[in-house]
């Protein structure tokens, strides 16, 4: 059961990773980063059950927090600088 969950999460992570690599605009990459972060949280929770030591849920909790704060911080910084025009122009 946990194996199925882990496989699903890994497939999702790799697809999101592909979007992060391709992502034409900066926001696509931020979105992919957010998604990889959420899936990392889930993966750690699932791995805790897979290895029969589910007492490490604290880490997953901290990951969820860091992920959210990270995305907000990134968006805060996108106000400055020229990433937006540069990022959406090409690549």
């Amino acid at each position: 059961m946990f194996t199925a969950a882990a496989i699903g999460i890994l497939v999702t992570m790799s697809l999101a990773l592909m979007r992060a690599l391709l992502g034409p605009t900066t926001f696509d990459r931020i979105l992919a980063l957010n998604m990889v972060g959420t899936k990392t949280t889930l993966l750690i929770a699932v791995v805790g059950f897979l290895t029969d030591r589910p007492d490490f849920m604290d880490i997953a909790l901290v990951y969820a927090l860091i992920n959210f704060i990270g995305v907000i911080a990134v968006l805060r910084y996108t106000k400055y600088g020229e990433f937006l025009t540069e990022g959406s122009a090409e690549e």
Binding site: A20, T40, I44, I59
Partner: peptide, 29 residues
Amino acid sequence: RLRNLFAVVMLSGIYSLLMASTFVLLDAV
């Protein structure tokens, strides 16, 4: 390979997250 440094920073964030999940798998919580 990427030249847009903002994308490089995003990817290095993803790199750290992946590295951290690998550490959990290798018992280094």
